[in-house]
Design a protein around this nucleic acid. Structure first.
Lengths: 189, 189
DNA sequence: CTGTAAACACTAACGGTTATGTTTTTGTGT
DNA sequence: ACACAAAAACATAACCGTTAGTGTTTACAG
């Protein structure tokens, strides 16, 4: 009865993808700030309101793919092997994320992000949300005896590691260096 | 010659103050998001453009007083007694800042901030700027032998301490708990 | 007292976002 | 096959923060 057959969902997803593709194309071509929402809508051949029914904001058009960052972090905690220590598991995940940002295919996107103030700020508040859900996952882990404050703190530190490493000259080395500090902070609690 | 007698500066400062007062009054009365820039301008009896010639953005109207947070942090590093250990000096400063936010007079302002998404995000990116200048101060300190990455990391952690402590049930205790972790992270480098 | 530069004002616009109401498409029960 | 409800997309216009363009007043210097 109320279970959709699938065509509707497919068409909706197709429209969403069409918008995201058009937006990314224009952004990389002319620069993020030089492209207006009305340009994106015209390029994707949809109405402006349709753009905003698929994406909450102009910035969200850029970070569409990173939607699973949050999930990957919490899963690195919840899905790790029994008795596997926490910090190395998180370090492995952050390493993979940093590597992904500097990969050849995605590098132009992240260069574009760094060039736009609006995008940098949007990403940062996105990471904050990620830190909060990571903190929730840490608090919920029965194998960890730390206080709620300690969990929230470590979650922030891990997100900091990501954002600091991305800006560093040698991102991979920076991840390792920062995680040494995080490990020490974790063990003191 | 180009040294003004003072009346002009006083009038300018008075206008600025009049705008800030009107804004804060309206914000606390009706809520930040329910007040428009045009309302603030009308209440202060100035033109909209005058508001923006004194304040860079609507959010900046709220954070006028916190302009010296940045300076206080860097001075806690540069002006500390010779051979005084770094982390306790920073902890003392963060303690004072957290106390200030929870003081009776300023509490309503910070409640208002927490209620507005725009203000929370603005504050967070303000803190990021503070972290960067703190990092610069740390890197420049000749008494510290740590790497640039370590300095930037500690700077972030210190800012995290502020923002996490403010959200905690017992802010002062949270500062102490987080700074234990920061101390451990610092000493491992 | 006059020139000038800062502060301020007024209007109009720009760009992201949202509200309003309409039309088209799609799924489903008859 | 048809009708109907829900969802999606549409078009238009507005709202709000912000900025540009263009005067007008005010405080200071000579």
């Amino acid at each position: 009865m109320t279970v959709p057959t699938g065509r509707r969902e497919r068409k909706k997803a197709a429209t969403r993808q069409k918008i995201a593709d058009a937006a990314l194309r224009l952004f990389l071509e002319r620069g993020y700030d030089a492209v207006g929402i009305r340009d994106v809508a015209a390029e994707a051949d949809v109405a402006v309101t349709t753009v905003f029914s698929h994406f909450a904001s102009k910035e969200a058009l850029v970070f569409e793919q990173d939607a699973d960052f949050e999930q990957r972090l919490t899963q690195a905690v919840t899905n790790r092997a029994p008795h596997e220590p926490l910090i190395p598991a998180l370090r492995r995940e952050i390493r993979a994320m940093v590597r992904h940002c500097t990969a050849d295919g995605t590098a132009p996107i992240y260069r574009m992000i760094d060039e736009s103030r609006a995008l940098r700020e949007y990403e940062e508040s996105m990471r904050l949300r990620h830190a909060e859900s990571l903190a929730t996952a840490l608090c919920a882990d029965p194998g960890l005896a730390q206080s709620a404050t300690a969990c929230r703190t470590i979650a922030r530190f891990v997100i900091d590691a990501y954002s600091l490493a991305r800006e560093a000259a040698d991102p991979q080395a920076a991840v390792d260096e920062i995680f040494q500090m995080i490990e020490a902070a974790w063990e003191v609690t």
